[in-house]
């Protein structure tokens, strides 16, 4: 058993490769991952599963990652950490992410190892 065994992480990305990759990396590390492919499913899964951390792509069909983040911050579980994983790399995009309440912002193409470190770091701070 590792310290992270069973901790629930919700991953939302419309790119199946990224979804599978993040799920694989985090599962290998011991997290319990649920992966979905659009913003609406992410919001529904968030309400049903009460994850300990959420990883959101920004550009998704239907609700964007920013929309989902905003809903999370306005919900009763507003303190759940959210990490944005996005190809949008301009300063203004990163600023918007943090302004809406993201705890971290990782730009694609990304290092899966770095992503894992950031997830571990965020969860260590909030637990």
């Amino acid at each position: 058993m590792t310290a992270v065994d069973g901790i629930r992480v919700l991953v939302a990305d419309d790119d199946p490769d990224i979804r599978d990759l993040v799920e694989f990396k985090l599962t290998q590390a011991g997290y319990a991952v649920q992966a979905v492919g659009d913003g609406l499913s992410a919001w529904e899964a968030f309400q049903e599963q009460a994850p300990s951390l959420v990883i959101l792509d920004v550009m998704m069909p239907g609700l964007s990652g920013i929309d989902v983040l905003r809903k999370i911050r306005e919900s009763g579980a507003a303190t759940v950490p959210v990490l944005l994983l996005s190809a949008k790399s301009r300063d203004s995009d990163v600023d918007t992410g943090f302004a809406v309440g993201a705890d971290d912002y990782v730009i694609k193409p990304f290092s899966p190892r770095e992503l894992l470190h950031r997830v571990n770091g965020i969860l260590a701070r909030v637990r």
Partner: peptide, 15 residues
């Protein structure tokens, strides 16, 4: 084809 797709999405040692 899939390797090329993945290469555009990751960086560092995996790339």
């Amino acid at each position: 084809v899939v390797v090329v797709d993945l290469l555009g999405k990751v960086r560092g040692a995996p790339a």
